[in-house]
């Protein structure tokens, strides 16, 4: 078993991170997933939250992600997300603005589809605020 696992974080606009790490903690749709080298094959959803990259026993990098998918096999962990921001770069004011916008959108939502979109946006904004330093 290899000592490290290849971690790829991809957003539609770029390859955010691609590095060999000791462990990553991914906010899975049904609870946080700690992915270590040699993990069995897994495909899951990712909820809005923070991905922690562990190297040498401590967290070396934290990245906020806004939901997506994760694919794990023994050598690699690929996370596909809609947007990714390093936790250190989160702008708290922008995040609260986003929360307000989402709340307003939810209140104005005319049909079920718009409501679902607003709800997911709300979750992203809430997660972003709680992730902000």
């Amino acid at each position: 078993m290899a000592d490290t696992i290849q971690f790829d974080l991809v957003s539609p606009t770029k390859l955010v991170a691609s590095q060999a790490v000791d462990m990553v903690v991914v906010p899975g749709g049904e609870g946080d997933l700690g992915v270590l080298p040699g993990h069995s094959l897994l495909i899951g959803t990712v909820r809005p939250g923070v991905i922690d990259i562990h190297e040498g026993g401590k967290v070396t990098n934290s990245i906020f992600v806004a939901g997506g998918f994760v694919e794990v096999n023994p050598e690699t962990c690929t996370v596909l997300v809609e947007e990714a921001t390093p936790v250190a770069d989160i702008d708290k004011a922008a995040a609260s603005q986003r929360l307000q916008d989402a709340q307003k959108a939810l209140a104005d939502a005319a049909d079920a589809k718009a409501k679902a979109a607003a709800e997911s946006e709300l979750k992203v904004a809430e997660a972003m605020i709680s992730a902000a330093p």
Binding site: E30, L41, G44
Partner: peptide, 11 residues
């Protein structure tokens, strides 16, 4: 054989 979390239909 992949593990699915949640169910594959849902994913």
């Amino acid at each position: 054989i992949y593990l699915y979390e949640p169910e594959e239909q849902e994913i």
